[in-house]
Simulated scan of single mutants.
Amino acid sequence: MVRRLAVVAVLAVALAGCSALSGGGGGATPASTDTVTPMAVPTDTPVETLSPPPGVAPNGSVAPGALLRAHYAALDGRSFGWRLDYRRSVEASGPPAAAAASNATVDVAERRLRVAANGSYRLTLRTTGATGGAVYADDTGTYTRTARANGSAYRSAGGELDYRHYLRTAQTLGRYFSVEAATLSTVERDGRTYYRVHVTHPPRALTNGHAKQTITDYAATAYVTRDGLIRALAVEYEYRLRDDLVTVSLRSEFRAVGATTVTRPEWVAELTGDRTATATPTTPSGTPATTPSGAQTAAPAGTPTAATGAETATARPPTATDGGSGR
């Protein structure tokens, strides 16, 4: 219960502020430049008055497939930024004499994605034990850079522009939100309505993957617009692996919807032999895009550093500076 309350509290605080998504500059850390203002804790709306997004029923039943289709339909033809932070920590048991020593190990995975309205995209990845990598794709092809201890490896390929498999939205919804009894409420923020889907019992899809473990302190929360865009979600739970305590947290956020720019990185120009070519960001109408105040800038891609601080996953639906609609 303490962990559930912590997740809800952190989510409520996160609702009040908006931080620009890091453009992925070499070693840059995503930073918040906005002032956090107080907001009311979300209150439940009577179930019979709710008109939830596709895939979410008023009784709390969640159909991942229908919600996934609505989510992608809401993103279609729009630029956006997305970030994923996954953290798994293992607190190993030890003899009493070693109790004062730290026996914890932490695995971290991060993804930062920027997508233009024309479908071109730029992705950076980082995982524990790896030096990271990057992917850039536009109508000329898909280009991949893999960082290694002795340098970087590059490759290019053709094919259809499709960023969706990097988001892993289908897997996330099916694993953490495929339930029959989520708690639904609404949150009003900057004149927009977000549906808060809150789950406190692990779905079967998750428990089946932990057949020999008992999951405890489960909390999963998603903020969804009326048309189905999953603007933010956070998941956290614990389980015992033999005598070790394992804590898992995941955070996913979509930002600057309709106000994100994407540029071709220098390493792609070097790979193709065209050092002057750049990808011009466009709006859905095909005109050159501008970067409004508070929107993401087109900084060179790199590997972001790990988030520091609390182990609790955080997420929030956006403020007005994030762009997009809360329909």
Rank of each mutant, 00 (worst) to 15 (best):
G26E: 13
V2F: 12
Y166N: 13
A6I: 10
E91K: 14
V268I: 06
A153P: 09
V2A: 11
A149M: 13
G286Q: 00
A14S: 10
L167Q: 04
P42C: 01
A315N: 03
R242Q: 13
A320G: 08
L167D: 03
Y194R: 07
R78F: 11
V10A: 14
T140E: 09
Q171A: 12
T49D: 15
D162E: 09
T37V: 12
F80E: 02
L5I: 01
T29E: 07
Y163N: 06
V106L: 10
E270K: 15
L233D: 02
E91R: 14
D274I: 06
T247Y: 08
R83S: 10
G132D: 00
T321F: 09
T308G: 15
W267R: 03
V199F: 00
R112W: 06
H71E: 07
Q171N: 11
H210M: 05
L206F: 06
G191R: 06
R275Y: 12
V41S: 08
L250V: 08
R251Q: 15
V36L: 15
L167T: 04
N208V: 06
G258D: 06
R148K: 15
L68N: 07
Y136G: 01
G132P: 00
V2P: 11
R189Q: 09
L68Q: 10
Y223L: 03
P30F: 04
D190E: 10
G302E: 01
Q213S: 15
P317A: 12
V268G: 02
Y223P: 00
D139I: 05
P292Y: 01
A12D: 14
A147K: 13
P317S: 10
N103Y: 13
D274H: 09
R204T: 13
A182W: 00
E180A: 13
G228E: 01
R126P: 01
A220L: 01
D162W: 05
G258R: 07
P203Q: 04
Y121K: 05
A137I: 02
Y194D: 07
T45S: 11
S79N: 03
V8F: 13
N150G: 12
